[in-house]
C-alpha cells in the first residue's frame, strides 16, 4: 500500500467518497442512500396500511388526526458497485503510473466507504482483474493487483465492450481510465456501459508529449499499438496544427460525454495524483 500512496494521502482520501448523480440501486445493504425503500432513518413517504404490514410502522399520530391507518416508509441504504476499467494497451505505457494511482485511489475510496468494487483491464478485450469485492480488508489486494498490471498490446475499445462479458452485472458506477485515442466504436462502448445501468465516468489521461509534441523534422511516426507507421515532415507549423487539432478532439469528446450524461475529466499525466484527487475530482464532483 505504501508503494502507491503515502499514509497522509490515504488519510485525506478517506474523507472523500465517490458520488453518483442519481440514487443508487444496489442489491445489498450498504452505507449509501438508495431509491429503494428500506430501513434507514431517512423518511421517504407515507402509504396506506395493507394487511400483512408490520403494525409497528403505523403512524398513530396521523391515525389520530385522519382516522386512517398510514404507514411511514424510509429510504433504504445500499452499497454501490464501482467498476474501474483501466486501459492497459501499449499507448498507456507512458501514463501507467498515474493511471494505476488514479484507479487505486478510486478503489480505495469506494472500498473504504463500504462500496463494492471491481477492476477490469481493457485492451482488445476486457479482462476482469478482480471481481466485485467489498470491505476495507480487500484494499491491499486491489493495490497489489493494480501494481501488477501489465500494459501491452493493442487497444480496441469498440471490440472490448462489444460483448456482455466485460459489462457490469449490477447497476452502479463505471469509471473508464484511458488516454482516449480511440480509433472506432468508442461511442457505442460508452453507451453500452450506460445501458448497463452504469453511471459512467471517463477519465482521459494524456501526456504532455501527446498534447504538445516537441519532436520535429522528417519522422516516421510509429503507432505503439498498431505499429502502423506514418511518414510526416513535422514543422513548427505542423506542430501548431497538431495542438489545435488535439484541442478540438478533446472538446468534441467532452461535448459528446456531456450530451449523454457521462462525466468527463481531462487529466494531464504529469499532474500530481494529490492535485487530481483533491482538486480536479472535487471540482467536477467525482469525489466529495
Amino acid at each position: 500500500m505504501t508503494q502507491l500512496f503515502e499514509p497522509a494521502f490515504l488519510a485525506r482520501l478517506e474523507m472523500l467518497r465517490l458520488t453518483g448523480a442519481k440514487s443508487i440501486r444496489g442489491n445489498y445493504t450498504g452505507e449509501r442512500s438508495s431509491k429503494v425503500v428500506g430501513s434507514s432513518l431517512d423518511f421517504a413517504d407515507y402509504r396506506p396500511y395493507v394487511p400483512g404490514d408490520d403494525i409497528r410502522q403505523i403512524d398513530w399520530a396521523l391515525y389520530a388526526r385522519l382516522q386512517k391507518w398510514m404507514l411511514k416508509t424510509y429510504l433504504d441504504e445500499r452499497e454501490m458497485s464501482v467498476s474501474v476499467y483501466l486501459d492497459t494497451s501499449e499507448s498507456m505505457v507512458e501514463k501507467k503510473e498515474i493511471a494505476v494511482q488514479l484507479a487505486a485511489a478510486l478503489c480505495y475510496t469506494s472500498l473504504y466507504h463500504g462500496d463494492r468494487c471491481a477492476i477490469y483491464s481493457v485492451t482488445e478485450e476486457i479482462h476482469r482483474i478482480l471481481p466485485m469485492l467489498q470491505g476495507r480488508k480487500k484494499i491491499p489486494q486491489f493495490f497489489s493487483k493494480l501494481q501488477q498490471l501489465h500494459f501491452a498490446g493493442r487497444g480496441d475499445v469498440g471490440n472490448a465492450f462489444a460483448t456482455a462479458k466485460g459489462l457490469p452485472q449490477q447497476a452502479g458506477c463505471s469509471i473508464f481510465i484511458t488516454d482516449g485515442f480511440f480509433q472506432t466504436g468508442w461511442e457505442k462502448s460508452l453507451l453500452r456501459l450506460q445501458a448497463s445501468h452504469q453511471q459512467v465516468i471517463l477519465l482521459q489521461v494524456v501526456a504532455k508529449e501527446e498534447r504538445e509534441p516537441s519532436y520535429s523534422g522528417d519522422l516516421r511516426l510509429i503507432d505503439s499499438e498498431s505499429t502502423e507507421a506514418k511518414e510526416i515532415a513535422i514543422s513548427p507549423y505542423a506542430q501548431t496544427l497538431y495542438r489545435e487539432r488535439f484541442q478540438k478532439y478533446i472538446q468534441q469528446l467532452e461535448k459528446w460525454c456531456l450530451n449523454r450524461g457521462i462525466r468527463y475529466l481531462f487529466v494531464p499525466a504529469e499532474e500530481a495524483v494529490e492535485t487530481i484527487c483533491f482538486t480536479l475530482f472535487r471540482e467536477v464532483g467525482i469525489l466529495r
Binding site: 509534441p213 523534422g217 522528417d218 516516421r220 511516426l221 503507432d223 506514418k230
Partner: peptide, 21 residues
C-alpha cells in the same frame, strides 16, 4: 527523404491532421 523512426503512443491525431491538410 530520410525519415527517422519515432514511436508515439498513438498517431491517430497525426493521421487525421494529415487527412485534413
Amino acid at each position: 527523404r530520410r525519415y527517422q523512426d519515432r514511436v508515439i503512443s498513438s498517431n491517430l491525431l497525426w493521421q487525421r491532421l494529415f487527412e485534413d491538410l
